[in-house]
């Protein structure tokens, strides 16, 4: 592993250069990852909880046109969309967010390779930041991750003191990105950063994901779902704030009789009409079936298909649920 030391001020100088080059700089500010131009807003606070929303909207926007069309009496003409190819540098990604693209990538390259996702993902540089604080909703350690996990980061930062970071260069992409800035990098001492990461307090492992996998396979008809379904209000907040939920809906928007565009919009499996058929039949007609789908998709179906859990343990869905439905609690207690 290549380990360096970098001063916070130098890191900000690099940010300045990133912006000068016309790239987009994303940082967690207030309660979201926002595009930052003013450096005084960059906090790089390892003790912050995950922002209210993840950065998924920058790679998989909440709404975007996928094609435009023109219609005449005899013909339909399709016009391609230009996908924005700007480089995006995310500075200070939480470990639970950093790995989200790796997890979503499977879906967007499964039976079809989604150009929109892939092009953007290719142009992402993720600079992860170690996490030094967790709350009652965090459970990264139960889903094969941790507050010091480098998974998904191209470069990983570990705060050494207020003005200094240990910088681990993880991927080829990360090394390419940082190479022009060699002058700012000093030789690091792996032992120091190791000591820091080893002393980080980890959230208790709340469940064994293999056991959850097994339980789900055997308990499709468990009465538990009914109990949760009665409390859950069928919004899509949990799905929309989730860094790895990726369902979308395709709709056509006509501007006029002759012109329009096809949109790709976020969708969520908790909505009643998510599975509504044109016939009026709805296979997931009640909320308990929908919530069961959410948990199964995350801890069983995705594992079957792609060998990974569709959850980074960020806890956003539970922290934000208007009726305090806690996914960690549900899967941890599934057997009782």
């Amino acid at each position: 592993m290549d380990e360096k030391i970098i001063l916070k001020d130098d890191l900000l100088r690099i940010c300045g250069d990133v912006i000068d080059k016309g790239h987009i700089l994303l940082c967690p500010v207030m309660n979201e990852y926002s595009i930052v131009k003013d450096f005084s807003r960059i906090k790089l606070d390892a003790s912050a909880l995950p922002a209210g929303t993840s950065f998924k909207c920058y790679v998989f926007p909440k709404t975007e046109p996928v094609l435009y069309y023109k219609r005449s009496k005899s013909d339909v003409q399709l016009i391609d969309v230009n996908i924005d190819r700007k480089n995006i540098v995310i500075l200070g990604a939480k470990p639970c967010d950093a790995n989200s693209l790796n997890i979503m990538k499977h879906l967007f390259n499964w039976d079809y390779s989604d150009e929109f996702f892939n092009l953007r993902e290719k142009n992402f540089i993720i600079i992860g930041l170690m996490c030094s604080h967790y709350d009652e909703y965090c459970f990264c350690t139960s889903v094969d991750s941790s507050p010091v996990s480098e998974k998904g980061s191209d470069i990983f930062l570990i705060p050494v003191d207020e003005n200094k970071f240990a910088m681990r260069i993880i991927t080829e992409k990360g090394s390419e990105f940082i190479s022009p800035y060699a002058e700012y990098l000093k030789t690091g001492d792996e032992n120091i950063s190791k000591q820091i990461t080893e002393n980080v307090k980890l959230p208790k492992v709340a469940f064994d994901s293999n056991e959850v996998y097994e339980w789900l396979g055997e308990n499709f008809e468990s009465p538990k779902w009914e109990g949760i379904g009665n409390l859950c209000l069928s919004c899509a907040k949990c799905a929309f704030v989730c860094p790895v939920c990726h369902c979308f809906d395709i709709v056509d928007e006509d501007y006029s009789y002759t012109e329009g565009r096809r949109m790709k919009n976020w969708d969520g499996c908790q909505f009643g009409n998510f599975t509504m058929h044109a016939s009026g039949h709805n296979p997931r007609d009640i909320q308990s079936k929908r919530y069961r789908q959410r948990v199964n998709h995350k801890f069983r179906y995705y594992v079957d298909k792609f060998g990974e859990i569709l959850c980074t343990g960020c806890g956003r869905c539970s922290r934000g649920c208007p009726v305090s439905i806690d996914i960690k609690e549900i899967v941890s207690n599934c057997k009782d």
């Binding site: 909440k62 209000l233 919004c235 899509a236 907040k237 799905a239 976020w266 909505f271 208007p322």
Partner: peptide, 22 residues
Amino acid sequence: CIKCYACRAVCPLCYCQRCITD
């Protein structure tokens, strides 16, 4: 707005079986 419709879901008076937006 990300159209999660949580505002509608939590509202006691948004009880329509089929909301106009659906």
